[in-house]
Nucleic acid binder design. Structure first.
Length: 281
DNA sequence: CATGCGTCCTGCTTGC
DNA sequence: TGCAAGCAGGACGCAT
């Protein structure tokens, strides 16, 4: 379940193996991995011969920027936008015609290596888009601000007049982009706010505390290389370490690390939510 | 308009 | 021990 810190870690980890490399070829092994993109043959034609110029992240979306094709006058740069959803993994390894289980896409590089996209659950998607197409993609266009760039005034405006439960709002990518179930639960616990609290009932002090908690949790998780529950690995194939620092996620029934009260499990916005009824009000 | 819930998909975990 | 049901969850489509 790669969220912002995991995707950021992967984007950084891919850079050394991808930047400046030319794309020799691409192959798909799953009919749905390209979403509503052109057919696999068109995808190959569109990506071959380009040079990778950047690996970056927007919300939970991994973006690989590619140069124009040098043999085509006036060709535009494109972006490979990869959403890992729950079980997607990206790594670089020696190119092979017979890739490992659950490989959905390979992008072969000029140096004999290849980018592998593995996704057991097949929820993940890859799109190859021009700049204009990326901006026009409704999901991309609707993404809210990056939490690490958010200031208190903008966060206040986000919560103002909203009766939605705070956790539903934190998970809504159009309101604030990049937070998923893990970091929503961890941030709300750190700020002492119940996940089912209506957003507009949170006062200024708690609101500031929540934004600071979100930034701190995300920053610490990036520093730890993300959180590995089951599937997530860094681009180097390593597990993250932040799961060791979870205070509430996946710990229902255990004592709260703050007050020793019993952590409880409930459902908010259709997702399992763990919180401490004693120190989250 | 805003919110909520079922759907997609597969593998691991739980319970009988 | 074995098998089926349950659960996980990001984004989306549809319902309320």
């Amino acid at each position: 379940m790669p969220e912002l810190p995991e995707v950021e870690t992967i984007a950084r980890g891919l850079a050394p193996g991808l930047l400046g490399r030319e794309v020799a070829d691409a192959a798909t092994f799953c009919p749905t991995v390209l979403a509503r993109q052109p057919d696999p043959a068109a995808f190959r034609r569109m990506i071959r011969g380009r040079t990778i110029t950047a690996t970056r992240r927007r919300a939970k979306l991994l973006l690989i920027d590619l140069s124009p094709r040098p043999d085509r006058v006036g060709d535009e740069p494109v972006h490979l936008a990869i959403h890992l959803k729950m079980t997607g993994r990206l790594f670089i390894n020696a190119a092979t015609p017979d890739p490992p289980r659950h490989t959905r896409l390979t992008v072969t590089l000029g140096d004999g290596q290849a980018l592998f996209f593995q996704d057991a659950r097949r929820f993940g998607t890859c799109r190859l888009l021009t700049g204009a197409e990326l901006e026009a993609w409704p999901f991309y266009a609707s993404l809210g601000p990056e939490p690490l760039d958010l200031d208190d005034a903008a966060f206040a405006a986000l919560l103002e007049g909203r009766r939605a439960r705070i956790k539903a709002l934190l998970l809504d990518q159009a309101k604030i982009a990049g937070i998923g179930n893990i970091y929503a639960d961890e941030s709300l616990h750190a700020a002492g706010i119940r996940p089912d609290a209506p957003a507009d009932t949170i006062g200024p002090a708690k609101r500031k505390k929540l934004l600071a908690a979100i930034k701190r949790v995300l920053t610490e998780a990036i520093a730890a290389g993300g959180s590995t529950i089951r599937d997530y690995r860094t681009a180097e194939g390593l597990e993250g370490a932040f799961q060791k620092d979870f205070k509430v996620y996946g710990r229902a029934g255990e004592p709260c690390p703050k007050c020793r009260g019993r952590l409880e499990k409930t459902t908010v916005a259709g997702r399992t939510s763990t919180f401490c009824p004693n120190c989250q009000k």
